[in-house]
Nucleic acid binder design. Structure first.
Length: 672
DNA sequence: GAGGGGATTCTTTTT
DNA sequence: GAATCCCCTC
């Protein structure tokens, strides 16, 4: 859409400015505010304008007191975008919440270690309570428990090694390891109970040890460690995860008024973007700062920007924000700068709350909204492509619920399935499959995927006329003739499929000393031949299985014998190259984006809930206060998806509708 | 027929 | 890692 050509009446413009005037007033009067309005209202724009206003108005004060404005975003991508739109400035720190929190509290080592100790104590209590709820455990006498504790605390490593074995082996090994089972036999504990008891006891033992190390200030136990790249708690090694960091921050704030004052004085303005998806711990943290600043009468303002109805992650605060926002000046805006009036109407119906948006434009071009109740994706896409004159410059964006379907329709189903069906992504690693094969951030790919990505990347760069030498060469100390010769050889690399290409690729590497240096930069893993590559993949994907047999090796061969376009399609998806007329996204991944032509494919269920969306359609017209949590989540997700469309929208429900559901749908989509 | 054991299956996303 | 299904045993 070209919004510059659209007309905005003076009246609408002035009314829109009123909401910004209210923000200015808050800043001038030292109040805090919450700017919540629907999709497409221009929240990010308002956020940046707010920052600019504070910068101009408070520049002298901020410089004089060595203070900074803080702007907190949900993702690194959002932080980068705001930095770019804002331009270079010393007055504002834009960062993600974790970055900000860690920068702020990370240096308070003593408070953090203390909090860590408290947390460990709490975890010990938790495990003790869990033990008391186990029948088999309560049957043990004190002496028996002490024996178990004693043996276990000396054999924790051994216990961890065997705890996932099956019943027979487990009970066999448990004796070998020296954890006597006799005590437990008397209590008639089942396998599950035995494992539970031993798990709890071993955790208690580890945590108790950690606490004693902390107390004696043993090396490595004098500070809490947080690394943004790893998201797990290793409490016994002093490492904490993202969520735990936020919990700690909130907790140590309670224990230090000095810390509260330092933060308020250093950062008198804190703006929080996408508040609906930030965790309650964060909101609590800032709420406490606000209360304290009022108590000591120091100037401190909070500004929240977001939309409760766009809360699509259940880790976010969502509508609990209502509780905290009573202390804030509520600023809303009814104008929408993104969608057609027709789409705005549908959006209003779906969100079904007090916010009723209007288009700010007088002459938004004609838009089309269609609801279909069919299951044939291909036919629908064909139909819409013609109807909306879809081309590469006027793309059709298809929203799907699952990454798996996105992969399938983007032309790399076989690639996705190869990983999904492997042993590695079964069980506890199941949740990693999507991030490790579908992430738009190539740094987040799994080890195999990352290696393949680099090889394909190299392959395409070599064949591309516009590639810069610096993208391939790490070392420039070659004569011109050598470079020319190497490039020519590398460009001749071919193969009717990826397997053949890889064989030639490794052959070339192993036959030319200079080229080896270049290619080894791509191959950071211990993989120097096609066989190495297969072994590398086997060791990751099937490492838990007893042995790697020919069958598995063959599967990998089959994988690389697939049509090269499958690999290319995957690569393009990761790299974000869209040279097609049709593009696929998950609903969730479209957050914050907008597209002219959108088709939403919706099924009855989602995840474990077989009626996720059919329940929503049953209740979609009801006052949303009557909704339950599940429906609320589905409603928000549907709202986010629908409001991505600017001009043309088609919603496709893939299964049958009941009579009542048809009625409800008609009510929402009636304005054809 | 109850319940244990083991295998299989399950959404999205960020830090 | 948790829910669910299937099979087996008591």
């Amino acid at each position: 859409m070209n919004y510059n050509e659209l007309k905005i009446s003076k009246e609408n413009y002035n009314k829109e400015m009123e909401s910004f005037e209210k923000i200015k007033k808050c800043i001038d009067e030292g109040k805090s505010w919450i700017f919540d309005s629907g999709a497409g209202a221009g929240k990010t724009y308002a956020l940046i304008e707010t920052l600019k206003y504070i910068m101009i108005k408070k520049e002298r004060q901020l410089n004089f007191n060595n203070q900074k404005i803080i702007c907190i975003t949900y993702t690194n991508v959002a932080a980068d975008e705001i930095k770019q739109r804002l331009g270079k400035t010393q007055l504002v720190d834009v960062s993600t919440i974790h970055e900000y929190i860690w920068n702020t509290i990370g240096s308070y080592k003593k408070l953090l270690v203390d909090q860590h100790k408290n947390y460990l104590e709490m975890k010990i209590k938790e495990n003790e309570n869990k033990l008391l709820s186990l029948d088999a455990y309560t049957k043990l006498n004190e002496n028996e428990i002490n024996i178990l504790k004693e043996v276990l605390s000396n054999n924790i490593k051994e216990y961890n090694r065997i705890k996932n074995l099956n019943k027979k082996e487990f009970f066999c090994k448990i004796e070998e390891v020296g954890i006597t089972n006799k005590v437990l036999i008397n209590s008639k504990a089942t396998l599950k109970e035995t494992k539970n008891i031993l798990d709890c006891l071993s955790k208690i033992s580890i945590y108790e040890k950690t606490i004693s190390y902390i107390k004696e200030k043993k090396e490595g136990y004098t500070q809490v460690k947080y690394d943004a790249r790893f998201n797990y708690d290793r409490l016994d090694r002093m490492y904490i995860s993202h969520d735990t960091l936020l919990k700690y921050a909130d907790a140590i704030l309670d224990r230090s008024n000095v810390l509260k004052q330092v933060i308020c004085d250093r950062n008198p303005f804190i703006l929080i973007d996408e508040f609906q998806d930030t965790s309650e711990d964060v909101v609590k943290f800032f709420d406490k700062l606000l209360d304290y600043s009022k108590k000591i009468l120091h100037p401190f303002s909070l500004g929240y920007y977001g939309d409760i109805k766009q809360n699509i992650y259940n880790t976010g605060i969502g509508n609990k924000m209502d509780y905290y926002s009573t202390k804030l000046e509520r600023i809303t805006k009814i104008y929408n700068r993104r969608c057609s009036p027709e789409i705005i109407k549908v959006g209003n119906m779906i969100r079904n709350d007090h916010i009723k948006q209007e288009s700010i434009y007088d002459d938004f071009p004609k838009s089309e909204i269609i609801f279909l109740n069919k299951a044939d994706r291909e036919k629908i896409i064909e139909y819409l492509s013609e109807k909306w004159s879809i081309t590469k410059d006027n793309k059709l964006h298809c929203f799907e619920l699952k990454n798996e379907i996105v992969a399938e329709n983007s032309g790399f189903k076989e690639f996705y399935d190869f990983f999904k069906k492997s042993g590695y992504y079964r069980g506890s690693n199941y949740s990693k499959i999507n991030e490790e094969t579908m992430s738009n951030d190539s740094k987040k790919l799994g080890r195999i995927q990352s290696l393949l990505y680099r090889i394909i990347d190299f392959k395409l760069k070599i064949s591309n006329e516009n590639t810069l030498l610096s993208e391939i060469l790490v070392n420039y100390r070659y004569p011109f003739s050598t470079i020319k010769n190497m490039i020519n050889k590398m460009r001749k690399l071919e193969g009717k499929n990826f397997k053949e290409y890889l064989n030639n690729f490794f052959d070339l590497r192993n036959s030319n000393f200079d080229i080896r240096k270049i290619i080894d930069y791509v191959l950071i893993e211990d993989v120097k031949s096609y066989n190495d590559l297969k072994n590398f993949i086997c060791n990751i994907l099937y490492r838990d299985d007893e042995e790697i047999d020919q069958d598995k090796i063959n599967k990998i061969d089959d994988f690389f014998e697939m049509d090269m376009t499958v690999f290319d399609n995957w690569y393009k998806f990761i790299k974000g190259i869209n040279d097609k007329t049709i593009e696929y996204h998950t609903y969730h991944s479209t957050k914050g984006k907008e597209f002219d032509n959108v088709v939403i494919f919706m099924s009855k269920g989602f995840g474990r809930d077989k009626d996720y969306f059919s329940n929503l359609i049953d209740h979609i017209l009801q006052d949303n206060k009557l909704d339950d949590k599940e429906i609320e989540q589905a409603r928000n997700l549907f709202y986010v998806a629908v409001t991505r469309a600017t001009k043309n929208l088609c919603v496709v429900y893939m299964e049958n509708l009941t009579q009542m559901q048809k009625q409800n749908i008609q009510n929402i989509f009636k304005n054809k």
